[in-house]
Design a protein around this nucleic acid. Structure first.
Lengths: 148, 148
DNA sequence: GAACAATAATTGTATATACAAATATATGTT
DNA sequence: AACATATATTTGTATATACAATTATTGTTC
């Protein structure tokens, strides 16, 4: 982790700036590892998250607004994101019969099976990324993250 | 910060997964604040970083490979990224006279002036993002980040 | 010094993401 | 019922990013 990589001045970098830059570099690193891990499944991190949200519904359908609300990114993507999962046969979509504006999304059997495999790969990625942090340090990190 | 937002299961989320998800949500939050802050200047975070790297050169030119090496993202973008800064008049580009494969990039007067304003806005953004963290907590965070 | 490899940057293409506008359906008001 | 308003999703467009292929120049080797 080389913070000096981005900013290199004669002056020392203030603690706050250093923290933010550090965070950004770390993000790039983590994101790369996770993308690599998801590559064999041909899904993006976002698509993976949608599948996880759908599984969390325990069989209940989720409409696009619900998915969008739970996700980090914005609405306009959700339609196209689900389109891609649909193409792979990981989800099923149906217009809500009581309110035809709504679209109900459910995860398919295939989606669930693939997701289980992704889970295992994800666990490996997490272990790699966090291998140098102890249980106590991870807890510290979560406490600090909660303050943001 | 709501980790349950992405994964919602009957089981408790393991500490490592929780940490990664937490991190991702935090990234989205921070990234949004920084983008908002940069919006008036019509530059992306990447473009801002290029300008900071160039300033760090203290007048010396940087070629595209150097910029790329210092940045988080990949080469292919660097050309187009610099193109945009060029359009705004923030940088100057010139073929290296001794090695005509290389392109030398320098920051312009205008670029420097704008960058100073961005610095101020960035400082405000950092203060907002990190307002709930004490000096000690920031130091803790940096120590933990270094372990990744 | 011709042929090949290495380096530096650019371009093409596909996909991802952000923002705004448009469409379709439902609800509330007079 | 006609109208405006709200809700849910989709589409268009511009920009961002990733990966591979291409071009231009330089360096190396026989």
């Amino acid at each position: 982790m080389d913070v000096e990589k981005i900013i290199k001045t004669e002056k020392e970098i203030p603690l706050k700036s250093r923290t933010i830059i550090h965070f950004m570099l770390l993000y790039a690193k983590i994101n790369e590892k996770i993308s690599t891990m998801l590559k064999p499944f041909e899904v993006s991190l976002q698509q993976f998250n949608v599948l996880r949200i759908l599984r969390g519904q325990n069989g209940k359908a989720a409409n696009l607004s619900t998915l969008n609300e739970r996700m980090v990114t914005k609405m306009s993507n959700t339609t196209r994101l689900v389109d891609k999962l649909l193409l792979k046969g990981y989800v099923h979509r149906q217009t809500c019969p009581t309110n035809r504006r709504k679209i109900e999304i459910t995860i398919t059997e295939l989606g669930n099976r693939q997701l289980e495999q992704m889970d295992r790969a994800m666990k490996d990625a997490e272990d790699t990324i966090l291998q140098n942090l102890s249980h106590k340090e991870l807890e510290q990190l979560n406490v600090l993250f909660n303050k943001f």
